[in-house]
């Protein structure tokens, strides 16, 4: 007997780096493509992904990222994060992976709900107007759980 198929996912994006944001976006978009309902919840630095002024300037984390296989000290040098981000963006463009702003717009078009975490919005002194138009609402953690009911929660 095969397992019960997944019909709904609620994906939390909590990090503000390029490598912290993309996986959650890919999972949300992929869920919709499979006909699975999906909501995205942006919290803490993940809010940068839906921040009007910041979402076009998301950088790759080059410090404390052993996956890059170069010395942490190097990763902290001025400009290294910019260069690595540029390199990664070029590779993504070649593979036709959309930029973060384009990807988020596309995910909103698939019918996925985009939500911002109230605690984080308050913490960073933001308002709804600071966030891109596709954000449906700023919600509390309690409201998030209500929305997530009956589905899987994925934290990234």
């Amino acid at each position: 007997m095969s397992a019960e198929p997944i019909t709904k996912v609620s994906i939390i994006i909590s990090k503000g780096s390029l490598d912290g944001i993309y996986p959650g976006l890919i999972m949300a978009n992929g869920a919709r493509a499979e006909g699975i309902d999906a909501d995205l919840f942006f919290t803490f630095f993940g809010l940068d992904a839906i921040h009007k002024a910041r979402h076009e300037h998301i950088k790759m984390a080059t410090v404390g990222n052993p996956g890059l296989h170069f010395a942490t000290l190097l990763g902290g040098l001025p400009g290294v994060s910019t260069v690595m981000t540029h390199y990664m963006s070029n590779r993504m463009e070649k593979l036709d992976i959309p930029t973060i702003p384009e990807f988020i717009e596309m995910i909103a078009d698939t019918g996925a709900g985009l939500y911002a975490c109230k605690a984080s919005v308050d913490l960073f002194g933001l308002e709804k107007n600071d966030l891109i138009a596709q954000v449906a609402d700023i919600i509390t953690v309690g409201e998030f759980y209500e929305k997530a009911a009956g589905g899987q929660i994925i934290f990234t």
């Binding site: 919709r32 493509a33 596309m106 078009d109 698939t110 019918g111």
Partner: peptide, 18 residues
Amino acid sequence: PTVRVLGKTSGVPIKELY
């Protein structure tokens, strides 16, 4: 094609595809 390719090249935008 994937949904992204469809949206870009089929002449039907993603919102309408869904």
